[in-house]
Design a protein around this nucleic acid. Structure first.
Lengths: 401, 401
DNA sequence: TCCCGTCAGTAAAACATTTTACCGCAAACC
DNA sequence: GGTTTGCGGTAAAATGTTTTACTGACGGGA
C-alpha cells in the first residue's frame, strides 16, 4: 500500500521498440506526445460565445404559470401537500414548455447540500486503474445514483492532506460526505474524525484506536475458511504470505484468524513460515522465494490477496515446481484475473462491489439523519470460498539438491 | 462493448462453498448481507445537529479586516492588481484567523461555472473496475487536478440517455464539460453534439459522421507494428481476432492497418482468418477456437486487445498446444496482466493514462476559450511494441489427427 | 484654478434556489 | 356571531459569491 514501488518490484521488463520515426514511451515516465491534428477548422458558429446560453429559471416558470416562486419550488421538491392538483399541473406544464432544469448549484446554496459524495483514495500509482478500488467505486456509484447523489473523485496526496483539503471539501459545501478507500495506519489525519459526527466512512478497513464508521469484508471468516480448506486437503507444511498487517487491520485479522484456526487443527506456523508480501505481485513473488528457501518442502501457500498469489505462481515456477501440483496456492479477493491464471486460482471471494454499496448506503443514512451519525458502527460483508485448480492434496517430493 | 454478457461468456465456474453458518454469495446476484454491528453506541454529542456548522463567509472576512466584500473577492481571485499590498495582507490575515474557505457552490453561481468535469462511461458491468477505464480516468483526474477541477462520475444507462441527462448535467451548471469514454456507434445521441461547441470530448474513439473533439491512441501505427513484428519473425499463417469493428472505429483502424501491412509484405488474410472477439476474454477464447478449427496450422494470432489474447491462451492450451511456442499470440493495450501471464504476453503498449490526460487538457482549453471549441480536432497518442515471451519464430507442426 | 487621469477601493445588482413567516378566505365549531 | 381551523398560496429573507459601475482623493498638466 505504498505509492513508491521498490525497483525490485518492476514487472519483468519487456523489450520495447519504438514505432519507426516515432518517439517511444520512455521507461516509466510520460512519453513524448506526437500530436496529429486532423480536425477540419470550421467557421465559428454564429451563436453567442458567452459562457453559457440563457436558461429558464424558476422565475420564468413562475411567470409562465402565473404563480409565485415559492409554489414552483414546492412543486419541484414534491413538497406538494398544500398545492392543489390544478396548480401543480399548471406548474409542471410550464416547466415542460420551458424545458426547465433546476440548477444544482443554486439548489445546494440555501441548505448547503451538494447532493454529492467524495470518494477519497490514497496517492497510489494510477489508483483508479486498480480492480480493487474500481470494484468498490462501482458499488459506491450504484448506491449513490439510487438517491440521485453524484460522486466526485479525490486523491489524498501529501499536499492534499497537509492542507486538510478533505476538510475544505466538506466546508466547501461541494460535498456532503467522504468515503475513504485504501486507508492504512499511515493515515494519521483520520484521527480528526475520531468520534466526530462528520460524515466520513472508511471502506474495507477499520481502526482500533478511532471511532469511525466502516464497512469491511469478513476477514476473520476468510482466514478460517482458508485454514479449513487447506487442512481438509491434507496440508501440513503451510506457508503464509501476509499483507502489511501492521498497517492494515483487516490484513491482521485475516492472518490472525488463519493462524488460529490452523492451530485448532494442530498445525502451528512459526515466524519462519510467514512473510509480508505488501499486497503487490512482485513483492509477493519475492516473499514466496523466501518461503521456499526457508522450507523447500512446503506443500501449500496462502496469500493474503490474489495479486501476491500471482507472484507466488512465478516464484514456484522459477523453482522448477508446478503450481497447483507441487505447491498448492490460495489467494484472497477473487479478482477477475484469478479465474484466468493457469491453473485457475483457488481464492476467497470478496464482494467489494457490495462493500462499496453498503458503505455508501451508510453514508446516505448519516446525511439524512445526522443524529444517527453519533453511534459508530462497523458492518461486515460475508465472503465465500472459490475452489479452483490451484489447490490439491499435497504430493510428497524429495528434498531438492 | 455490450453491457449484457452472453451466458457462454461466463468465466469457468468455480466451486463455491459458503462459510459454515453463513449465507453464501448466490451466483451472480447480490449476496444476502449479514450485518454485524459492533459499534459502541455513543451519547449524542452536545453540539447542534443542524445540517452544517456555521462557517465563516466572505462577509465575515470583510468585517474582520475592515474592507468591502469586493476587496476580499478580488484578493481571493488573485485579481489583486488594484489592491495595495497592505490591504491584501490584512485580508489574507483575516482569512487565516477565521479559517475561511470559499464555498464552491456559491462561487459557481454567478458565472455558472462549477469547476467540475463529468466522466461518462457506458453502462457496462462494474465499469469502473476495468483497467482500461480506470487508467483513462486516472489520466483525466491528474490533468483536472492540476487546474483545480473536480471529476464527477456518470454512467450512461438507458434511462440516463433517454432523459438526456447528459444535457441536464451541462444545463445544471453542475458540470462544465463531459468526457465520454467507451463510446461506440451505438451511442447515436452523440449526434446532438455534432458540430456543436458544447464542451464534449470523446476519449479513445472517434467518428466519421460527426464533428467531435477526440483523443485516441495511434491504432493505425499499432496495426502496422503488429504486422511488421510477426512478419519479421517469419509468420505466414496468421489469424486475427478483431474487436467489434462495425461499432468502434479505432478497432477498425487497427484491423485495417494490420491487414494492409501484411498485404504489403505479401501475406493476404481472407475472412476465414478473421473473427470478431468482442473485446472480452471469453468471446476471445471462442474466437480463437474457431480460428484453430478453420486452420489448425495457424502459427500466430494477433488479438485486438489483451483480454482476448488471454482468452486465446486458454483456447490454444485446450487444443493441446503451447502458447508462445506452437502458436504465437500477440495482444494490444499492455494491461498489467499482460506481463504476468505465462508466457508473458507480447503486446502493443498504449498509454491510456496519457490519452485521458490529453483529453482532459483539451477540455480545459475549450472551457477557457470557448472560441477554440469551434474547430474540431483529433489528437493521436503514440504507441510502442512490447515484445515478450508469447511470440517467437513459427515451428512447423504436423496437421493434427 | 480647472480638468483629467490614476489609484484604491466600494455599493449594489445578479446568480437560482429554499425556507420562514405570513395572509386571505371559507367552513366548522361553540 | 365571534373564534378557530385548515386550505392554498405568497412575500421576503437568506445562502455566498462575482462583477459592473461607481466614488473620493490626490497629483500633474495647461
Amino acid at each position: 500500500m505504498d505509492s513508491s514501488t521498490p525497483a525490485s518490484a518492476q514487472p519483468p521488463r519487456a523489450v520495447v521498440r519504438p514505432a519507426s520515426g516515432m518517439v517511444a514511451a520512455s521507461n516509466g515516465s510520460a512519453p513524448v506526445i506526437v500530436t496529429t491534428d486532423i480536425g477540419t477548422p470550421r467557421p465559428l458558429s454564429t451563436r453567442s460565445v458567452s459562457p453559457k446560453p440563457p436558461r429558464a429559471s424558476i422565475r420564468d416558470v413562475a411567470r409562465e404559470s402565473g404563480v409565485s416562486l415559492t409554489t414552483v419550488s414546492l412543486v419541484l421538491n414534491k413538497n406538494d401537500s398544500r398545492i392543489s392538483a390544478a396548480t401543480r399541473q399548471r406548474v409542471l406544464d410550464a416547466m415542460e414548455r420551458l424545458a426547465y432544469t433546476p440548477s444544482r448549484l443554486a439548489r445546494g446554496l440555501p441548505n448547503r447540500r451538494a447532493k454529492t459524495l467524495a470518494v477519497l483514495v490514497p496517492a497510489l500509482q494510477h489508483a483508479f486503474a486498480d480492480v480493487y478500488f474500481g470494484e468498490i467505486i462501482s458499488g459506491i456509484y450504484e448506491a449513490a445514483a439510487e438517491r440521485d447523489f453524484h460522486i466526485v473523485l479525490e486523491v489524498a496526496r501529501r499536499e492534499y492532506v497537509r492542507r486538510k483539503e478533505y476538510m475544505t471539501l466538506l466546508d466547501d459545501c461541494s460535498v456532503d460526505g467522504i468515503l475513504f478507500i485504501g486507508a492504512t495506519e499511515e493515515h494519521r489525519w483520520l484521527s480528526e474524525f475520531d468520534g466526530s459526527t462528520k460524515p466520513m466512512v472508511v471502506v474495507n478497513n477499520h481502526f482500533r484506536q478511532w471511532k469511525l464508521h466502516s464497512v469491511v469484508c469478513d476477514y476473520p471468516s476468510a482466514g478460517r475458511m482458508a485454514a479449513d480448506t487447506l487442512i481438509e486437503m491434507g496440508h501440513k507444511r503451510i506457508g503464509h504470505i501476509s499483507g502489511p498487517s501492521d498497517m492494515v487491520l483487516t490484513s491482521q485479522e485475516l492472518t490472525d484468524s488463519f493462524l488460529e484456526r490452523l492451530g485448532d487443527h494442530g498445525v502451528r506456523l512459526d515466524q519462519r513460515h510467514i512473510v509480508d508480501g505488501q499486497f503487490l505481485v512482485e513483492t509477493g513473488r519475492l516473499a514466496c522465494d523466501e518461503l521456499l528457501k526457508r522450507d523447500p518442502r512446503l506443500s501449500a501457500v496462502f496469500c493474503a490477496n490474489d495479486k501476491m498469489a500471482l507472484g507466488a505462481y512465478q516464484s514456484v515456477r522459477a523453482a522448477g515446481l508446478v503450481p497447483g501440483k507441487d505447491v498448492s496456492i490460495m489467494g484472497c479477493d477473487d479478482i477477475p484475473t484469478a479465474a484466468l491464471s493457469d491453473p485457475p486460482l483457488t481464492t476467497i471471494r470478496m464482494n467489494f462491489f457490495e462493500v462499496g454499496a453498503a458503505a455508501c448506503r451508510r453514508m446516505l443514512e448519516m446525511i439524512e439523519d445526522p443524529a444517527r451519525a453519533a453511534d459508530f458502527t462497523m458492518q461486515r460483508i460475508p465472503v465465500a470460498m472459490a475452489i479452483r485448480g490451484s489447490c490439491a492434496a499435497p504430493v510428497v517430493r524429495p528434498a531438492k539438491k
